[in-house]
Amino acid sequence: MNRSVLLLTAIVGVVGSNSLVLSPIAAKVALSLGAESPAGVMTAAALYGLGVAAAALVLAPLADRFGAARSLRVALVLLAVALAASAASNTVFMLCVAQSVAGIGAGVAIPALYTLAAQIAPKGQEARVIGTVLTGWTLSMVGGVTLSAYVADFFGWQYVYGGLCFAVFAVLVPLARMDLPKQLASQSATSPLTALKVDGIVPALVAVALLGLGFYGVYNYLGAHLEVNLNRPVRDAGILTLLYGLGFAGAMAFDGILDRIPVVRGLAGIFALLTGFYLVLIWASSSYMLLLLIIPAWGILEHLGLNLTVGWLTRLDPAQRGAIMGLNSAVMYLSVFVATLVYRPGFTTYGLAICGLISAGLSLFAVVYVLQSRRKTAVPTAVV
């Protein structure tokens, strides 16, 4: 496999670890920092998502002018500083500030990573390469989040963020030496406004939002559910995340097929299956063993949905790929922010089952929406 693809995959794993790690260790962090509940600590996750969204809108388009590789290097330095500050936090407020800054770094890094993946992919193999890079999220779950749950349990949550800081510097060294594409996609300024004028982008972004809201509305409260409602230790959340990650990685077997199927039809199918999954989750949420059985299927479906939405967006306008992928990250991480806040009252009152019900409704709406969008909006011919 191409060394550049492997490096980008590893970087996705490191960046993704921070965006996912707080949920399974929220109970430990809350106890250490004197928060009223694990759900209160998740405010830091919401602010991280808001930081990603803001940076993806304002700063990610700069990759079209200065190059995605250069943008990625600067973003990772900022992320490392924010992770060090997270490890040193002694109040919830300090953690929220540090995670907001981490969000800014990730908001530039993630669009740059997806842009680089599209740039280095051979023609006709975009979904395969993007799918491989997306499996970095599996690394973040299997190697990052799962390990972090054990580290938090036995050593303390501060070591989790300290380890992530070290991991960022570990990938920065080979990134500085790697010969990545340096071409500038655009000689003129791009922005969210110019990207929003691209034909087909609005339905694609709505699909991203619905995918993100459904996922994070459940995932962000999964760790707290196990701790508070099922009386399970933090490490059990790590096992669930491990199984999700294995499902996410296993979906790579289908990435080649995605290059040949209509993206809208494929997304409609994935959202239909997600609707079914969330309905099953309502029934399974009262049993840890049932959750263990169904969680790998969630990983498979999320991988395929993410690959299809990213592939759709990267093909719309290569000259504005940085701005477009910035919008993608902004929408996805606004979903983190919105889902964390909107789902919280329901989770606090009714538990994880109501979160599954809301996500099922969103996924069902997504099925109808993406099918209607095919009739109203142009979609790249390579994926129709």
Rank of each mutant, 00 (worst) to 15 (best):
Val97Asn: 08
Ala80Ile: 08
Val108Pro: 01
Ala109Ser: 12
Ala98Tyr: 11
Phe93Asn: 00
Val101Met: 09
Gly105Tyr: 13
Leu95Thr: 07
Ser86Glu: 09
Ala84Gly: 05
Ala112Gly: 02
Leu95Pro: 03
Val97Phe: 05
Val108Thr: 07
Ile110Gly: 00
Leu95Lys: 04
Phe93Leu: 15
Val101Thr: 09
Val97Met: 12
Ala85Thr: 06
Met94Ala: 14
Val108Phe: 11
Phe93Arg: 04
Ala88Ser: 12
Ile104Phe: 08
Ile110Met: 14
Thr91His: 06
Val101Pro: 06
Val92Met: 04
Gly107Pro: 04
Ala88Glu: 11
Val92Cys: 03
Ser89Met: 11
Ile110Phe: 14
Asn90Gly: 02
Ser86Val: 05
Val81Cys: 08
Ala85Ile: 09
Val92Ala: 03
Gln99His: 06
Leu79His: 05
Ser100Asn: 01
Ala112Met: 06
Ile104Cys: 09
Ala82Pro: 09
Asn90Ile: 12
Leu113Asn: 01
Met94Arg: 09
Gly103Lys: 08
Ala82Gly: 05
Ala98Val: 06
Ala87Phe: 15
Ala85Leu: 15
Ala102Leu: 11
Leu95Tyr: 09
Thr91Phe: 07
Phe93Cys: 01
Cys96Tyr: 14
Ala82Tyr: 04
Leu79Trp: 09
Gly107Asp: 07
Ala109Cys: 10
Asn90Trp: 15
Val81Pro: 00
Ala98Gly: 03
Ala87Thr: 10
Ala85Lys: 02
Val81Thr: 01
Val97Pro: 15
Ile110His: 01
Cys96Ser: 14
Gly107Leu: 08
Gly105Phe: 13
Pro111Ser: 05
Gly105Gln: 02
Leu79Glu: 07
Leu79Gly: 00
Val97Leu: 14
Val108Gln: 04
Thr91Gln: 02
